[in-house]
């Protein structure tokens, strides 16, 4: 995607955010923010017994990049296994949001991922990761 297309992609997510709002009875609610620049985000997640993200949404305020990244992240995570979310890296966000934008505003672009990681860490306290993956989630060998 060239720079202009990337900008339009982000503006679309900012102006038409996906999964914005609070979900009913979330299993995880986590708020986080960037001191100094005023970006704030709250993530809501619902996790089923098979450790799959059955719903995810966000609320927040802040710059275009921080809010668009949250919209992109929640769109990518709908229906995914929790392990997929736990293994996401800043590189994944860079690939989705765009390298140049991430480079110029790293804290804004990664706020959603950061909030997610903290949320999942909190979730893991009473829900430790299984020692052995359940059927269908492990290696195919």
């Amino acid at each position: 995607m060239d720079r202009q297309a990337q900008i339009e992609f982000l503006l679309d997510h900012y102006e038409n955010p996906r999964n914005r709002g609070k979900i009913e009875d979330p299993d995880i609610t986590m708020s986080w923010g960037n001191p100094g620049c005023g970006d704030v985000l709250t993530l809501y997640l619902k996790i089923d017994e098979a450790e799959r993200i059955v719903d995810i949404s966000f609320e927040g305020e802040g710059c275009t990049v921080s809010q668009a990244s949250a919209s992109i992240l929640t769109e990518k995570l709908q229906g995914q296994p929790l392990a997929y979310a736990e293994n996401l890296t800043p590189d994944d966000i860079t690939n989705w949001v765009g390298r140049e934008i991430t480079f110029s505003r790293p804290r804004c672009a990664l706020l959603a991922l950061d909030t997610l990681k903290i949320a999942l860490k909190e979730y893991r306290r009473p829900h430790p990761r299984p020692l052995f993956p359940s059927e269908g989630e492990g290696s195919k060998g």
């Binding site: 900008i7 503006l11 900012y14 102006e15 710059c63 275009t64 990049v65 668009a68 934008i101 505003r105």
Partner: peptide, 9 residues
């Protein structure tokens, strides 16, 4: 701007 994509809006 501090918000790098504001001008475009």
């Amino acid at each position: 701007d501090e918000d790098v994509l504001l001008y475009e809006q």
